[in-house]
Design a protein around this nucleic acid. Structure first.
Length: 453
RNA sequence: UCCAGAGUAGCUCAAUGGUAGAGCACGCGGCUGUUAACCGUGUGGUUGUAGGUUCGAGUCCUACCUCUGGAGCCA
């Protein structure tokens, strides 16, 4: 029965028999014995195996190369040398799969760019093992956060005919051959269909029935974006709450980010330690800061004031009524407030139709949560629940209300104030690991011109 | 898509317009309860692609490809 290395290393006492399986990270030969570093990905650390010459399997010792796979049986004993608490005194070693000299992962630091070209092997590296173990833990933390607050998990469709306006270009889904625009009525769904850019509109229908819901699934944007924080396929978390206003929305967003940072600190210490050592020394401090300190909240108008009066020279000037540029957002979070910052009440014209119009008639209840180093991780709003205003908003944005008949029905029958937001899961992982490129926190990144794996 | 930068050995990088090198990896030898082991030694190249300038191009020019950083779109 195989034991995971994670459990072997957590042992409280020696064990007479243990079986381990994993991949050889490195081998150090002595005259009469060899050290094998075995890693199975169950935890960050590898385990040291001591194999004496003469034990079964040792005749193949030269083939236990970096990258090869092996099963080892022996006893778990306290290590006499510094560097590890436990090691395995092998009784036999079995080579399962060889890895010849062409194995691309070497016993040294590789650039992230190179590792992206071997995305099928990079999970075997220290950094990517840590990233994907942590990603898994955080996915669980997302569900725990919402489930413990009685939110219902809703799986909104991946294929959709509705364009969540403002969310970007969509991938067309079709079974038509030739000219796919000629007769959409003969297409598989009888109309044009796309990969979803957001589950929000569908999510709202469930919030207006089950009160508090969340989605957590893949999302697609066909934008030709070439940046470290955009991908064509990413995972988004979208809570939606009935009987909730913008304040409640901002409260939940802040609580959510704090909760995940706390979860990472409590459950991912070993992997976080690696990020702190090799990626960003300030990471643990930053996470503690996020957990302990309230986020800054500032209305858009005030944010513009701060930027205007800062005396800072920006490449793009600050203009009221226009979107904040990346450099403006960075100034607010990284220099002015030095804290995660929620900006709210944006001008109506630069935000989508479904956001609730404020009493001033000029702004809507939009809110963006900005974090240092990443920028926007959350975008959300209180939704327009007044039927007449919603229709007016659609027209204002040049949309045909008939296309959104079922969405408008939510306001026609038992409308309620409700609010929600979208959080990019990868961006959150970037923030919590300090890994600065989105391509390195998703198993197989889809970006323009890149879908090899 | 726009702006900037970079493509040289398996990897990370050197090389004034004049004989393409080093470290690591890998092979061989040695040494050692070792820790990305160490010491010696050897193998390793169509300098991203296609043109051009020049007696001579890794180096200069043009186009294209790829990647990186920044910007826009946003999560």
């Amino acid at each position: 029965m195989r034991t995971l290395i994670k459990h072997a290393l957590a042992a409280t006492e020696p064990r007479d028999f243990i079986q381990l399986g994993g991949w050889v990270r490195t081998r150090r030969d002595s005259k009469d014995f060899s050290f094998l570093e075995l890693n199975d990905g169950s935890c960050f650390a590898s385990i040291q195996v001591v194999a004496d010459a003469g034990i079964p399997g040792y005749e193949q010792i030269a083939d236990f190369t970096t990258g090869s796979s092996a099963v080892v049986e022996g006893s778990l004993v306290a290590s006499p040398a510094a560097g590890q608490k436990w090691e395995v005194k092998a009784r036999n070693i079995r080579l399962i799969g060889t890895a010849d000299a062409t194995y691309p992962l070497q016993k040294k630091g590789h650039t992230l760019e190179f590792l992206r070209t071997i995305a099928h092997l990079r999970p075997r590296s220290n950094l990517f093992g840590a990233v994907f173990r942590m990603r898994s833990k955080l996915a669980l933390a997302v569900h725990e956060f919402f489930q413990s607050r009685d939110f219902v998990y809703v799986q909104t469709p991946i294929i959709t005919a509705s364009d969540c306006e403002g969310a970007g270009e969509m991938f067309r889904v079709t079974t038509l051959k030739g000219n796919i625009d000629e007769q959409p009525t003969t297409d598989f769904f009888g109309k044009k269909a796309y990969l979803t850019v957001s589950g929000q509109l569908e999510g709202e229908t469930f919030a207006c029935a089950l009160s508090n819901i969340y989605t957590f699934g893949p999302t697609f944007r066909a934008e030709n974006s070439n940046t470290a924080r955009h991908a064509a396929e990413f995972w988004m978390i979208e809570p939606e709450m009935a009987f909730c206003d913008l304040q409640g929305d901002m409260d939940l967003a802040e609580e959510f980010i704090k909760s995940l940072a706390k979860y990472a600190l409590e459950h991912c210490a070993e992997d976080l330690g690696f990020f702190a050592k090799f990626v960003d020394k300030g990471l643990p401090e930053r996470l503690k800061f996020v957990v302990e300190r309230p986020f800054v909240r500032v209305p858009y108008t005030e944010a513009v004031d701060i930027l205007t009066k800062s005396g800072k020279k920006f490449e793009f000037s600050v203009v009221y009524g226009q979107n904040l540029q990346s450099e403006h957002e960075r100034f607010l979070t990284e220099e002015h407030f030095k804290s995660p910052t929620t900006v709210f009440n944006y001008p109506r014209d630069i935000k989508p139709f479904y956001m609730r119009v404020n009493d001033d008639g000029k702004t809507v209840t939009a809110m963006d949560v900005l974090v240092p180093g990443i920028g926007e991780v959350i975008g959300g709003a209180q939704r327009e629940e007044r039927p007449d205003v919603l229709v007016e908003q659609m027209k204002h944005h040049n949309l045909n209300p008939a296309d959104y008949w079922w969405y408008a029905d939510l306001r026609k029958y038992g409308t309620v104030p409700h609010a929600g937001f979208g959080l990019g899961f990868e961006r959150l992982i970037m923030f919590l690991t300090a890994v600065s490129n989105i391509r390195d926190v998703i198993p197989f990144a889809r970006t323009p011109g890149n879908a090899e794996f």
